[in-house]
Deep mutational scan, measured.
Amino acid sequence: MASQGTKRSYEQMETDGERQNATEIRASVGKMIDGIGRFYIQMCTELKLSDYEGRLIQNSLTIERMVLSAFDERRNKYLEEHPSAGKDPKKTGGPIYKRVDRKWMRELVLYDKEEIRRIWRQANNGDDATAGLTHMMIWHSNLNDTTYQRTRALVRTGMDPRMCSLMQGSTLPRRSGAAGAAVKGVGTMVMELIRMIKRGINDRNFWRGENGRKTRSAYERMCNILKGKFQTAAQRAMMDQVRESRNPGNAEIEDLIFLARSALILRGSVAHKSCLPACVYGPAVASGYDFEKEGYSLVGIDPFKLLQNSQVYSLIRPNENPAHKSQLVWMACNSAAFEDLRVLSFIRGTKVSPRGKLSTRGVQIASNENMDAMESSTLELRSRYWAIRTRSGGNTNQQRASAGQISVQPAFSVQRNLPFDKPTIMAAFTGNTEGRTSDMRAEIIRMMEGAKPEEMSFQGRGVFELSDERAANPIVPSFDMSNEGSYFFGDNAEEYDN
Rank of each mutant, 00 (worst) to 15 (best):
F429I: 12
Q241F: 08
D240S: 09
V299T: 03
R102A: 15
N319S: 08
E455I: 13
M43E: 09
N498M: 04
N417S: 02
G485N: 15
I138M: 03
A179C: 08
T215P: 03
E107I: 10
M1C: 10
Y281K: 09
D112F: 12
F420D: 02
R461L: 06
A27F: 05
G485H: 15
V285C: 09
L108W: 10
K293C: 09
K7A: 11
N247H: 05
R436E: 06
G169N: 05
M456I: 02
I301Q: 06
Y296N: 14
T424S: 02
K91A: 02
N483R: 14
A403P: 01
D491G: 03
F458T: 07
A123E: 12
M163C: 15
L466Y: 01
T45L: 14
G485C: 00
A336K: 07
M196Q: 02
A70D: 02
G169L: 04
S438I: 06
L298P: 12
D72W: 07
Y78D: 15
P83M: 06
Q231H: 01
A428T: 15
V363W: 09
R117M: 02
S217A: 06
N432S: 15
C275W: 12
A284S: 12
W139H: 10
L266V: 03
N498G: 09
Q241K: 05
L61C: 13
R162F: 08
D34Q: 02
V190G: 15
M191V: 12
F479S: 08
A153E: 06
G180W: 07
D72M: 13
E443Y: 10
R384Y: 05
F338V: 01
S353K: 09
S402W: 08
E14M: 07
S310L: 12
G485M: 10
R213E: 07
R162C: 06
A22K: 15
E375N: 10
N370A: 03
T396F: 01
L56P: 09
E14P: 02
R246S: 02
V343L: 12
S245L: 02
E46I: 02
P453R: 00
G209N: 09
T430C: 12
R55Q: 04
S50W: 02
V100S: 03
C164F: 03
D439S: 15
R195H: 15
K198I: 08
K305G: 13
Y289W: 09
V100M: 06
P423Y: 03
S69M: 06
M371S: 01
N142V: 04
T378F: 07
T232W: 10
Y296S: 14
S438V: 01
N211R: 12
S377H: 03
I197E: 12
D340A: 01
T350Y: 09
E375D: 02
A428H: 13
G394E: 09
D112W: 13
S335L: 04
D127E: 02
G54M: 12
G126F: 05
R75Q: 11
V312D: 10
C223D: 12
T437E: 15
D88G: 06
P95S: 01
M189G: 02
F458L: 04
M189N: 06
M440I: 06
R195D: 10
L133I: 15
R246Y: 00
R117S: 03
V343I: 15
N125K: 08
R55C: 09
T396V: 14
P354Y: 05
M447F: 15
R389Y: 11
D255V: 05
L172F: 01
S245E: 08
Y496L: 15
R213N: 10
L266I: 02
R348Y: 14
T350Q: 04
K31S: 05
D112Y: 03
R175K: 05
I33T: 03
I33L: 00
F479L: 15
E495R: 07
F39G: 04
Y148I: 06
M167P: 04
I41K: 00
I265R: 04
A286N: 06
L226Q: 03
N319D: 08
N321Y: 15
W330P: 05
N59V: 05
N397D: 14
E434V: 15
E18P: 01
L193K: 03
V329T: 02
R361V: 04
P474T: 05
A411G: 13
D240V: 12
T437Y: 13
E114Y: 04
M1H: 10
P410A: 09
Y487S: 06
L47P: 07
G209H: 06
A442R: 00
L193V: 03
N395D: 06
L193T: 06
T62Q: 13
T92W: 11
T146W: 12
A387S: 06
L166Q: 12
R384D: 11
S165I: 08
E320R: 10
G435W: 04
T15M: 06
D51I: 00
L143E: 14
R19C: 14
M136D: 04
L344A: 13
Q4V: 01
W104H: 12
L49S: 01
G5M: 09
E210A: 15
A263P: 04
M105K: 15
M43C: 03
D290Q: 06
I301D: 13
T396I: 06
S457M: 04
S50R: 00
A263N: 13
K422W: 07
M331V: 13
R342T: 04
D34W: 09
S84Y: 09
E115V: 14
I138V: 13
D491T: 02
E494T: 11
F488Q: 11
G490R: 12
L358M: 09
D160H: 09
M331H: 06
L133Y: 03
P83K: 00
L166P: 13
G212S: 05
G94K: 05
S141A: 09
V414T: 00
G35K: 07
Q399G: 15
R384W: 14
S482K: 04
A27E: 04
E192H: 08
M374G: 07
T430D: 04
K91E: 08
D255H: 07
M136A: 03
R195S: 06
P322T: 08
A442C: 00
R436D: 10
S392E: 10
N370I: 14
E46S: 01
V280K: 12
K184D: 08
R38T: 00
I36R: 02
Y97A: 11
A284D: 08
R355Y: 10
S262V: 09
E380F: 08
G158K: 10
R121T: 13
K113T: 14
V67F: 10
D340S: 14
R208L: 15
R261V: 12
E81I: 00
K227S: 04
R99D: 04
E339K: 14
G35C: 10
P453C: 15
D203R: 06
G86R: 00
E73G: 04
T215M: 12
Y78T: 06
R384C: 00
E107C: 12
F338N: 14
G460I: 09
G212K: 08
E24D: 04
W330R: 03
D302F: 09
L276S: 12
Q415D: 02
E449N: 10
P283Q: 00
S376G: 08
R389G: 15
L108V: 05
A237N: 15
Q149P: 14
T424N: 02
S50Y: 01
D128G: 12
R174Y: 07
E465L: 10
K422R: 14
L108N: 13
M239C: 06
E469T: 02
E375M: 10
G37F: 14
R156K: 05
G209S: 13
A332W: 11
S297Y: 09
Q231T: 05
L315I: 04
L298T: 08
F346S: 05
P277Q: 10
N321I: 04
Q459S: 00
G460M: 00
S297N: 15
L56A: 01
T147N: 10
R195C: 08
M481E: 11
A123F: 07
R118Y: 10
E320N: 10
F488E: 11
R317E: 11
H135P: 05
A278Q: 09
A337E: 06
G94N: 06
E252R: 11
D468W: 10
G30Q: 09
P410I: 09
H324K: 10
C333N: 15
F230A: 10
E18A: 00
E339A: 08
M481Y: 02
G86D: 06
N321F: 08
M32G: 14
R246F: 07
R8D: 11
N368Q: 15
N125Y: 06
D72R: 04
D421P: 08
G490V: 09
V155N: 15
